Simulated scan of single mutants.
Amino acid sequence: MTHLLVCDDSNMARKQLIRALPAEWPVTISQATNGQEALEAIRQGLGQVMLLDLTMPVLDGYQTLAALREEGLQTKVVVVSGDVQEEAVRRVKELGALAFLKKPADPEILRATLVELGLFDPKAEAPPSAPTQDQDALLDTLKVNFRDALREVTNVAMGRAAALLAKVLGVFVQLPVPQVNIFEVSELHMTLSDAQRGQRLSAACQGFIGDGIAGEALLLFHDSEVSDMARLLKWQPKDDNETSEMLLDLSSILIGACLSGIAEQIDVRFSQGHPMLLGQHASIERLIHLNQKRWKKTLAVEISYSLEGDHIHFDLLLLFTEDSIRRLTHKINYLLN
């Protein structure tokens, strides 16, 4: 019997992964919600094989792989992540991962990978007529709420957007755990103001709608970083108009890829408006004041992209209308059944 450890901070991701396992694979399954918990489990002999996420709090996947090597802990690691940058794949294999699978893991690809790595031999196992009661009970304990599910859907989508951005800019994009909150406009104002206190910003906005779900994507650029972005793009804007064009091009890449990733997972086709600049060289207070009638009460998904080796980051907010929440909930619940 193989001791399998599934390490991911999302209940939804762990549930999807456990469901994707070969039904006849005789494993005992342990779980960890971050790398620190995973290391503790492996030290106790609970992780002969580990399925490991990359984007996690406390200790992420890269740090976990490095710690395994440093401590000399023996476990066979398959990374399952939404961060599909080519550099991410290269780094995890360099750190000792045996394989990389993109989220959500396809059961057939997972099965083939486990067979190829010699971790699972279907000929040696007698297939049961149904999943074991233990696995059923384990899946029942994994309760997934709306925010956790939307966070995981966004996690996968932002990974695809990062891979596209990495190719365009020739950099490695560092990804956070996305944040999901429901705000009144006054709370959104305070949250953004606290995060961006004293900084001058330019902001691009792009509306989207599809299948009863609507909202706006807001991408914040820090003015102090625009020249560095231009350098990476090999662009030399001569005036504010050319700078605006550059920012709108970047907005189209990031917002379009992220919305496309969400739409694909929840089986929706979004129609997107043209991105437009809400303001240049403005304070966040001014941007909020100019647009507070649009946003009102909103479901906000916040993603902060950072570029490794450069003092550049983008803050992407997906602002769903209050009326969209019921339909979005229905679509996400469908993923879990």
Rank of each mutant, 00 (worst) to 15 (best):
D9L: 01
R14P: 09
I18V: 14
L21W: 05
P22C: 08
I29W: 02
Q31H: 00
L46D: 07
G47R: 08
P57Y: 05
T75G: 07
V79G: 12
V84P: 15
E94A: 11
L101I: 14
P104F: 01
L110N: 03
L110G: 04
T113I: 02
P127Y: 03
L142R: 01
L150H: 04
A161L: 01
Q174K: 09
Q179C: 06
V185R: 09
M190Y: 12
M190L: 14
A204I: 07
G207Q: 14
G215S: 10
L220E: 05
F221N: 02
E225Y: 08
V226T: 15
M229V: 13
W235C: 04
Q236L: 15
P237S: 07
E242V: 05
E245G: 13
L248M: 07
I253T: 05
G261E: 06
I262D: 01
S271M: 09
Q272Y: 02
L277I: 14
L278W: 05
Q280V: 11
H281D: 15
A282T: 08
E285F: 04
R286N: 14
H289G: 10
K296E: 15
T298G: 02
E308H: 06
I312H: 10
L318E: 03
L319I: 03
L319Q: 04
E322I: 09
R327E: 11
R327Y: 09
L336Q: 09
